Amino acid sequence: MKTVVITGGTDGMGAALASHYLRESERVVVVGRSRVKFEALLAALAADDPATTDRASFIAADLSLTAESRRVVEQIKARHERVDVLVLAASFIRQKRHETVEGHEASWVLFFVSKYILTTGLTSLLADSDHPTVVNISVPGARVEAIDFDDLESVRCFSFIRSNAQQRRANELLGILATVENPTLAYLTWGPRRLVKTSFAGDVGWVMKMSSVILGAVAAQRPADAIEPIIALVADPPTGRAAYRGAARVPLVHGPHDADDAYRLATAIKEY
C-alpha cells in the first residue's frame, strides 16, 4: 500500500487524485482548508467501499502560512513512516498582492514556499519509498530570469503575471534541491494540457471569474480526465527532474546559474 500526500486535495484535480488513489486502496493524506469538502468526498467513496475511511486522513491547513506548512510536515512525520507520492496541488488565485498575518506575500508562500517546506521537510520519508515521486502542479516553462531575488515578495511591484512566472520558475529550481537530497526521487513539474474545470477558488475580479466560467463551459476538461497523465507518471516515474504538459514531456528550462539560483532560494527560505 502506497502513502500518497495531496495538498489541495478537496477540490479540482487534487480531489480527483485523492478519489482515484483511495479507490485503488492506497493510503491518502489530504491537506486542505475545508474539512466539509473532505468529509463529502469521503462519504461518496465510502458508500461503495466502507474501508475507504480507514485509509484516508485529513490535515486542515492554510498553506499560505509558513507555520501551517511546517505543522503539516510534523504531523505527517508523526503519523507515517513513509511517503511514496507527494502531490503539490493547493491553489488560491489572487490578482492583487496580499500580506498574511505572518507579514509575507500570500501567493509567493502558497505557490512556492509551502512547496519548498513540504518537499524538503518530507525528504526522509520520501527516501524510504522504493519509487519516491513529487508531482508539483506548476506549469513548466517559465523564463530563466523570472525570479527577482531582490524582491521575492513583490513589495515594489506586483502583477499576477509576474508573480505567476516567478513561482513557476522557483518550483522548477526546487527540483534541483530535491533531487540532490534524494537522487532516486522523481520530481515532476506538471501542468495540464488545457483548461480544467474547477471551482476557481480565489480572490479575483469579475472579469477573470466570468472568463473562467465561459471558457470552462466551452473548452475545459473534467478533473478526472485531466489527472490521467499524472496517474500514468506516478505508476512508472522517471528518475530525476522532468517536466510535462499533460502526457507530453517538455524540455526543462536551463539557465547558466540554475544550481546557484536554487541554493539562493533555499537561503532565502531560511528567513521564513
Score class of each variant (00 low, 15 high):
Val4Glu: 07
Thr7Gln: 03
Asp11Glu: 08
Asp11Ala: 04
Gly14Pro: 11
Leu17Arg: 14
Leu17Tyr: 08
Glu24Val: 14
Arg27Tyr: 14
Val29Glu: 06
Val30Trp: 15
Lys37His: 09
Phe38Val: 15
Ala44Asn: 12
Leu45Val: 14
Leu45Gln: 07
Ala47Leu: 10
Asp48His: 09
Asp48Asn: 15
Asp48Cys: 12
Ala56Asp: 03
Ile59Cys: 05
Ala60Glu: 10
Ser64Leu: 14
Thr66Met: 10
Arg70Glu: 09
Val72His: 05
Val73Asn: 02
Val73Tyr: 07
Glu74Tyr: 02
Glu74Pro: 04
Glu81His: 04
Glu81Gln: 03
Val87Ala: 02
Leu88Phe: 02
Ala89Gln: 12
Phe92Ala: 03
Ile93Leu: 13
Gln95Ser: 05
Arg97Ala: 02
Glu99Val: 10
Glu99Gln: 12
His104Thr: 11
Ala106Gly: 13
Val109Arg: 08
Leu110Thr: 02
Phe112Thr: 03
Val113Phe: 02
Lys115Tyr: 13
Tyr116Arg: 00
Ala127His: 04
Asp130Arg: 13
Asp130Lys: 14
Pro132Tyr: 06
Thr133Gly: 07
Asn136Leu: 04
Asn136Val: 08
Ile137Tyr: 11
Val139Gln: 12
Val139Ser: 11
Gly141Met: 13
Gly141Cys: 05
Glu145Thr: 06
Ala146His: 06
Ile147Met: 08
Arg156Glu: 11
Ser159Trp: 08
Ser159Asp: 15
Ile161Thr: 12
Ser163Arg: 09
Ala165Asp: 00
Ala165Phe: 00
Leu173Pro: 01
Leu173Tyr: 00
Leu174Tyr: 02
Leu177His: 10
Val180His: 05
Asn182Gly: 03
Leu185Met: 08
Leu185Pro: 13
Tyr187Pro: 03
Pro192Met: 10
Arg193Glu: 09
Arg193Ser: 06
Val196Pro: 07
Ser199Lys: 15
Phe200Pro: 03
Met208Ser: 08
Met208Leu: 14
Ser212Arg: 09
Ser212Thr: 07
Val218Ala: 06
Ala219Ile: 11
Gln221Phe: 05
Asp225Leu: 09
Ile230Arg: 00
Leu233Pro: 08
Val234Cys: 05
Val234Asn: 09
Asp236Trp: 05
Pro237Val: 00
Arg241Glu: 06
Tyr244Lys: 15
Arg245Ser: 13
Arg249Tyr: 05
Arg249Val: 12
Arg249Gly: 11
Pro251Ala: 11
Leu252Gln: 07
Val253Trp: 02
His257Ser: 04
His257Leu: 03
Asp260Met: 04
Asp260Glu: 10
Asp261Ser: 13
Asp261Val: 01
Asp261Thr: 01
Tyr263Val: 00
Tyr263Ser: 02
Thr267Ala: 15
Thr267Ile: 13
Thr267Phe: 12
Thr267Cys: 12
Ile269Asn: 11
